[in-house]
């Protein structure tokens, strides 16, 4: 008996090992490495010294870091709900069975996700241009001047537009998949009870979407707090608007690769990771509590 159990255990571990190896190499090792890196300070003059938590105390007082963090938080608060509502409406519309060619809509809305983020930012950058870009031409057409979409006041909204354009389709697909997994019987039962299309959407579809909503929100938390590609590309067009600390990730990048402050940059990255985990956890808490209340 015992030998059999051991053998079973060995087999189980053998199956588990490949995953464990990749997990350790790909996730745990870089994490440990970055945390270790963040405890030192390397100077151009004077070499590397162990400084304990100094980098973290510095980050807590670093206004440049806070400004970037505040900016992505604002972005999260406005762009993510907008994007998810749009994705939700699209998924409900496609699922309703009332569209003539739902496949075309599905692919059409999803298509931008297939465009690499850098290309999307470049493309929108051209469109935003107020001289030779689409925005400029529309302005000329109506003999008015459109607001400069790449100016300080509009930049965050312009970036939000690029991100929304890219990710609505992706989130729509997750919602749509969740909707497809609702058993037909539920709808039939609801119809028997006299429920119309809106009633079905409200009482069956939306509750069933909650896990999908949690997942998309979580991904959005991660994506938003790590915002990097879009502002980096648009920086070429509006260098004074997008500063080196525009988002925390850009700040970390600038510290590491322009300033060679790899250690402080690692500390910023660790803190950013923690903030991301905290926000994602808070999102889960809120969702779970609602679920219990229902």
């Amino acid at each position: 008996m015992r030998r059999g159990a051991v053998r079973r255990n060995v087999t189980a571990h053998a199956f588990f090992l490949p995953f464990l190896a990749v997990f350790v190499i790909g996730v745990i090792a870089p994490l440990v490495y970055a945390i270790n890196l963040s405890l030192y300070q390397e100077k151009m003059i004077g070499g590397t010294v162990f400084t304990g938590l100094d980098n973290y105390t510095k980050a807590f007082k670093d206004e440049l870091f806070h400004v970037g963090l505040g900016r992505v938080a604002l972005f999260f608060a406005i762009q993510v709900p907008l994007m998810l509502i749009l994705a939700l409406l699209a998924a409900l519309a496609i699922d309703s069975g009332r569209l003539r060619a739902p496949g075309v809509f599905r692919i059409g809305i999803f298509m931008p996700y297939a465009v690499p983020g850098v290309v999307a930012a470049l493309m929108w950058g051209y469109l935003y241009g107020d001289r030779f870009g689409l925005a400029g031409e529309i302005g000329d057409l109506f003999h008015t001047e459109l607001p400069d979409l790449l100016s300080e006041h509009w930049m965050l909204a312009s970036i939000g537009n690029v991100v929304t354009w890219s990710y609505v389709g992706y989130n729509m697909l997750i919602f749509y998949a969740a909707l497809r997994s609702i058993p037909e019987e539920l709808y039939e039962a609801a119809e028997m009870d006299g429920a119309g299309a809106f009633r079905k959407a409200w009482s069956i579809k939306l509750p069933a979407l909650r896990p999908a909503l949690l997942m998309t929100t979580t991904f959005s938390v991660i994506g938003t707090f790590q915002l990097f590609n879009e502002p980096s590309i648009l920086q070429q067009l509006a260098p004074a608007v997008i500063t080196t600390n525009y988002t925390p990730n850009m700040y970390a990048y600038n510290l590491a690769f322009d300033g060679r402050q790899f250690n402080y940059s690692a500390a910023i990255a660790v803190l950013l990771g923690l903030v991301t985990v905290l926000v994602a956890y808070a999102v889960q808490l809120v969702t779970t509590r609602r679920e219990r209340m229902l």
């Binding site: 790909g26 870089p30 994490l31 938390v221 790590q226 590491a256 940059s265 990771g273 994602a280």
Partner: peptide, 8 residues
Amino acid sequence: AAALALSL
């Protein structure tokens, strides 16, 4: 979340 943040 953690892995993405730290890959940088």
